[in-house]
Nucleic acid binder design. Sequence first.
DNA 1: AGAATAGTGTCTTTGAGACACTATACC
DNA 2: GGTATAGTGTCTCAAAGACACTATTCT
Lengths: 231, 231
Amino acid sequence: MTSHDNDAFKPIATVDLAIFSLSPAGLSVLLVRRANAPFSGDWALPGGWIHIDEDADLEAAARRVLKEKTGVETPYLEQLQTTGSRTRDPRGWSISIVYIALLSADDVAERQGGMAGEAEWRPIGGEGVGLSLAFDHAALLKEALGRIRSKVEYSSLPGHLLPVHFTLSELQSVYETLLGRKLDKSAFRKRMAEADFLEPVEGEMRRASNRPAQMFRLKDAQSLALFDRTL
Amino acid sequence: MTSHDNDAFKPIATVDLAIFSLSPAGLSVLLVRRANAPFSGDWALPGGWIHIDEDADLEAAARRVLKEKTGVETPYLEQLQTTGSRTRDPRGWSISIVYIALLSADDVAERQGGMAGEAEWRPIGGEGVGLSLAFDHAALLKEALGRIRSKVEYSSLPGHLLPVHFTLSELQSVYETLLGRKLDKSAFRKRMAEADFLEPVEGEMRRASNRPAQMFRLKDAQSLALFDRTL
DNA sequence: AGAATAGTGTCTTTGAGACACTATACC
DNA sequence: GGTATAGTGTCTCAAAGACACTATTCT
């Protein structure tokens, strides 16, 4: 047995989540207020220790944290990156494995009030949430935003933030919000048709005081589809 | 203090590296033969425990391992992903943070024989090295290859595998090797000029029994430049 | 001059963007 | 018919690929 089987030499390991959804104000992230030291009272990304007796693997740990904080079980979930250093947590050498989760608007609507206490959706303004966050979470959130904004250009990512059924106009609107620029309707529809990650919901139409619109759903709500080219 | 300050609840944490270079047979990866259990005698990606008294952060740990195994200090280094589960290491719940390193051909030439014993360059054939590897390292290597192959399409990645000075023809040839297809010379040169990550080495020319070729170097040997569009 | 590779110019085709048009509902 | 949004067609322009041509060295 080496000295490293002595647990005093092991770093601390947590899983932290950047959980995103759409609110009327645009893209929002879920933050929790810390109850305990360190950083007691500060806002932070939801997270928790890895439970080696309970979690089969890292993704299971991330899903457990997500379930605890939001009640949602099967969102889009992707590993972002891992940070670790001697100084990021005053309690000692610490590692954080960060995941990004995208919640469908349906999930968010269902869970109104059913969320863990002291958790709150904060809209994203420019670089972040305009709050100082615990640990290095402000930097982690910035990384997560960078990843999301870059993926909007070449993936089905925005579709995972909408309700399960949506129209092409609604989808285009989310792309425009996240990209911060207008897209051409004709070109957009051509790209969606090529990309082939949507399927029409037969018979379902969005009705209003105008021509009804075909509703669509993602062919696979668990994974992103990537485009050949950029939008 | 919670029960998780008891170290028996902490997972094991290691840093593992997929170190790539170019050999006459094409892209190669550095493997080491394990001296101790578990998987004693098997080939594995080079790696090691995080030394919480010595490593300031994860990247420092990766650089330390790289230096120990190859002697190289400043290659291109990027975090790939983190795996962790109860079953991947028989000693217990274990996390591996995986990094990709790209070694310049100059570094490899210098270190001939200066490498740690029982380390060996293995050429990549299709999906992997054609060996069964310790732990889940075969899957990790496959992920690393996927990342590399995808980045060749839209980044300066191949330039990091060449000697510090190289010609455009040599660079094109590496792109072609990694992509597995031929590229048009004219289009390739236009793209490289736009991408703007190369600078000519004034006065230096590759001489042979034909027209001499201008030599180039990367403007930044530590980071990748990304293209707007795909090759 | 011939061989070999470096480096550039041109033509054709493809695809994205701009924009206008048609379609179908409610009022 | 008027209005509002859905959905499609067309034209233009720019970028990418194919390919041919010129340039420069050594033998």
